[in-house]
Computed example of a mutant assay.
Amino acid sequence: MLRSFKKADKKAPALVDEAGYAQPFEYVIGWKSDSIQLGDHPGTQRGIGSDYRGTVNLVDYPDARRMDLRQTIRDPFEQVKVRQFNQDSTTPIYAVCDLSSSMQFRGHKRKLDTAMEVATAVANSAYHAGDLFGFIGYNQQVLEDYTLPLSRNLHQSKATIAMLHDYQHLRIGVEGVADMPNFLGQTRALVFWISDFHMPLSVIEKSLSAMSAHKVIPVVLWDDEEYKKLPKFGFGTMIDLETGRNRTLFFRSEVKAKFVDAFNARRLALEALFLRFDSPALFMHGDYRAELMTHYFEQAL
Rank of each mutant, 00 (worst) to 15 (best):
T114H: 08
D63K: 11
Y94T: 07
A126L: 00
M116R: 14
D63M: 06
D131K: 01
R65L: 03
G134S: 04
G130E: 03
P62H: 09
E117P: 01
T55M: 13
K81N: 10
R65S: 13
F135D: 05
D75T: 01
Y127Q: 10
D68C: 08
N86D: 13
C97L: 14
Y52L: 13
E78G: 12
D98T: 05
V122L: 01
R74K: 15
S125A: 12
R65T: 06
D98F: 08
V82Y: 00
N124A: 10
D75H: 14
D60P: 01
R106Q: 13
D98P: 04
T114S: 12
F135S: 09
I73L: 14
A119N: 02
M67L: 13
T55V: 15
T120A: 15
T120K: 11
T120W: 07
A121E: 03
P76C: 11
E117V: 13
K81Q: 14
Q104H: 11
L58R: 03
L132A: 07
L69A: 12
D63I: 07
T120D: 14
S125G: 04
V59K: 14
F133Q: 05
T114G: 13
R83P: 05
K109L: 14
V59M: 07
S89K: 04
D63N: 12
S102A: 08
R74H: 09
G134V: 01
A64Q: 07
P92G: 10
Y61G: 13
Q87H: 05
L112I: 12
F77V: 07
D51A: 09
D131N: 11
L132H: 06
M116W: 01
A95E: 06
G134P: 01
Y61E: 06
M103G: 09
V96G: 10
N57W: 08
M103Y: 09
V80H: 07
S125T: 02
E78Y: 10
A129V: 00
A123P: 00
K109C: 12
R66K: 14
A129M: 05
F77L: 14
H108V: 07
V122Y: 00
A119F: 00
A95H: 04
H108A: 10
A64W: 03
P76Y: 05
S100F: 08
D131V: 02
L58S: 12
L132Q: 08
H128T: 10
N57S: 11
R53H: 12
V80P: 01
D131P: 00
S102M: 06
R106L: 11
R70P: 00
Y61P: 10
R106S: 13
F85R: 05
T55W: 00
S101D: 08
A119M: 00
T72H: 02
R83H: 12
F135L: 13
P62Y: 05
T90E: 09
T72K: 01
M67R: 06
A95I: 03
L99W: 01
R74A: 14
L58W: 02
Q104K: 13
E78W: 02
T90F: 03
S101I: 04
V118R: 02
N124E: 06
A64Y: 08
R110G: 08
G130P: 03
